[in-house]
Each structure stands twice: as C-alpha cells, then as structure tokens.
C-alpha cells in the first residue's frame, strides 16, 4: 500500500446558499499524477484553494503528508508547490526577480533559480520584465515558481489553459517526467478529458461539486466496453427474432445493438438473421470513448 499524500474527507465549501464543493473525498497516493477532471464551474479551483489554505472549508478535513492542514499549515506548505488558476507574477519585475522574491521566502539556494528557469526554458528571457511576457511564458514562469522549493507535492490548476498546442505538449511532457525523475506527486486539474487521458495515472472526476469517479485511469478505460451494431431492414422484426432466439439484443434508433458479445455468438446472430431473410447491411463495432463514459457519469452534462 502506497503512502497517501492527500486525503480529504467530506470536504465542502458553501458560497451563499450553494455548495461549490460538496463532500469531496480525495485520495492521492505518493508518486501518482492525479488528474482532477471536471467541466468549468465544477469546483476544481475551489477544492485546490482549500488544499492550499487559501480558502477555508465549510466542512470536512484535509490531510496532506498525513498532517492536518488546519493545524500544521506552514509545515505542509513548505513541501508543496502550486499554481492556481491563472499564473501569478509581478509585472514590474523580471522573471529572475520574480523567482528571487519567492526564493527568499523559501530559503532555497540561489542556484535553484537557474535550475528552474532552465527546466521551463526561460533562461534566455530571464532578464525581461514579466509584463511583456506572453500567457504561455507567464504560465511557465508560474510552474518554475512552483518548482522553486523542490516540492514533494505539486498542485497545478489547469496549467495548460490558454497555451498553444506546442506549449501544451511541452508542459504535459514536463509534468509526465517529474514523478519519474524526482518522485514527486502531482495533482493537475483540467476540464479536458483528452489532456488528463494523456498524462494522468489516477483520475478524479468532479461535477457540480461532487466527486463522481475516483480510481486509476485503467479502471476508467475498462469501462469503455464495446458494442456490436447491426444495420438491417425491419429492425423491430429482426430484434424480436433475436430475442426469441435468446440473444440479449437491444433496439436503438432502428439499429440492433449487442453489447459484450463473443465472436462465436455474433456469427450465430448473423446466420440467424440471414436465414430469416433479413438483409444485413452493416455490422460494426462501436467502442465507447472516455467522453461517452464521462457523459454517462455526469448524466449528460456537457462541457468537455
């Protein structure tokens, strides 16, 4: 059993009369890339702000590194690097001065600034005031700042938001390399399933403030079982025939659907249809995408 890095129980946050986060139980083991997935407004940022002590939970507890965040906040935060929502920066300072202002607080060695600048490939821009940076550069500076204190836990809230495809790729590769190279645990949020699919090892899906799925990405993928779809004439008659022969078929939009069916059984089904003179136009396999699973889990709420 791997050590648990983040554990929340019953974590809730109320704004006015509405719960933005309701009863969330996060469980993040060491060394994982935990993809925190949910449509816009689902409560990802609010959850992350509570994990960092920026906002107070209305209810529930947070344990990070096995410590109660409420009691040992500074001890916990020493070992955490974070980037919340859009990147933070001081526009009137250069990239290096921005990092220096943080380095002083963290007591990190001066050489660490050069290291993180090169990790996010900003070494050449280090002497420019940050107000002239593109969003992607600010985002990379934010990640550099998060890495400055050699954190054991990295919390990144939508780190690829607003980046161009090459920037997204770059940050994704960076995130993927970190647990391997430095053994750190990463919580990364996104509203894009495709993105989480490409880098996460664990997934938590949040919708309207509630966790609706939390497990490994493989378990999520396993849910994408396949369907065999058959197109024929007089589908309803054909469907009745298959039912009478004891097949577990469904009729959907004038097509026959058989789920999780063996090769042997499908050949029998087709033979029976042909024998009864139903024309078989098309037999195709349809795999549910992660999107479909997500839509199923969220009860059809869009946004991904």
């Amino acid at each position: 059993m791997k050590e648990t890095i983040i554990k929340t129980s019953g974590l809730s946050k109320k704004f006015g009369t509405r719960y933005a986060v309701a009863n969330v139980d996060l469980h993040i083991p060491r060394g994982e890339i935990y993809g925190f997935l949910g449509p816009n407004g689902a409560g990802k940022t609010t959850t992350i702000r509570m994990l960092l002590g920026l906002a107070k939970p209305t209810n529930g507890t947070i344990q990070i590194f096995g410590k109660d965040l409420k009691k040992e906040k500074l001890e916990v935060l020493k070992r955490v690097g974070s980037l919340v929502e859009y990147p933070s920066y001081y526009g009137h300072l250069t990239a290096r001065e921005n990092l220096e202002a943080i380095r002083i607080l963290l007591d990190a060695p001066k050489t660490r600034i050069d290291e993180v600048l090169s990790i996010v490939r900003l070494t050449r821009e280090a002497k420019r005031p940050v107000k002239g940076f593109s969003l992607g550069m600010k985002q990379r500076l934010g990640i550099a700042a998060a890495l400055l204190g050699n954190p054991e836990l990295l919390i990144l809230d939508e780190p690829t938001n607003g980046l161009d495809p090459s920037g997204i790729l770059e940050i994704r590769e960076l995130i993927k390399s970190m647990p391997k190279e430095h053994g750190i645990t990463i919580l990364v949020s996104s509203h894009l399933l495709s993105e989480i699919d490409l880098m996460a090892t664990q997934v938590g899906i949040i919708s309207k403030g509630r966790m609706i799925f939390q497990d490994s990405i493989e378990t999520l993928r396993r849910r994408s079982s396949s369907n065999i779809v058959i197109k024929t004439d007089e589908a309803e008659e054909a469907w009745k025939l298959l039912l009478s022969k004891g097949h577990n078929a469904e009729l959907e939009q004038g097509r026959l659907q058989l789920s999780n069916i063996s090769d042997h059984e499908i050949s029998k089904v087709i033979a029976e249809l042909v024998e009864s003179r139903f024309p078989v136009y098309r037999v195709q396999e349809e795999k549910k995408s992660l999107e479909d699973i997500f839509l199923e889990l969220t009860g059809g709420e869009g946004g991904l």
Partner: peptide
Amino acid sequence: RYEHTGGGWKQLLAMPVS
C-alpha cells in the same frame, strides 16, 4: 497593488509564510 494585479496574493499566501 502589485499583489492584486498579478494574482500575487494567492501565490504569496500559498507559501510557507504566516
């Protein structure tokens, strides 16, 4: 001002500082 404009508060207050 420079904390408000660049989102500095959330970065500063997520640091191990009281």
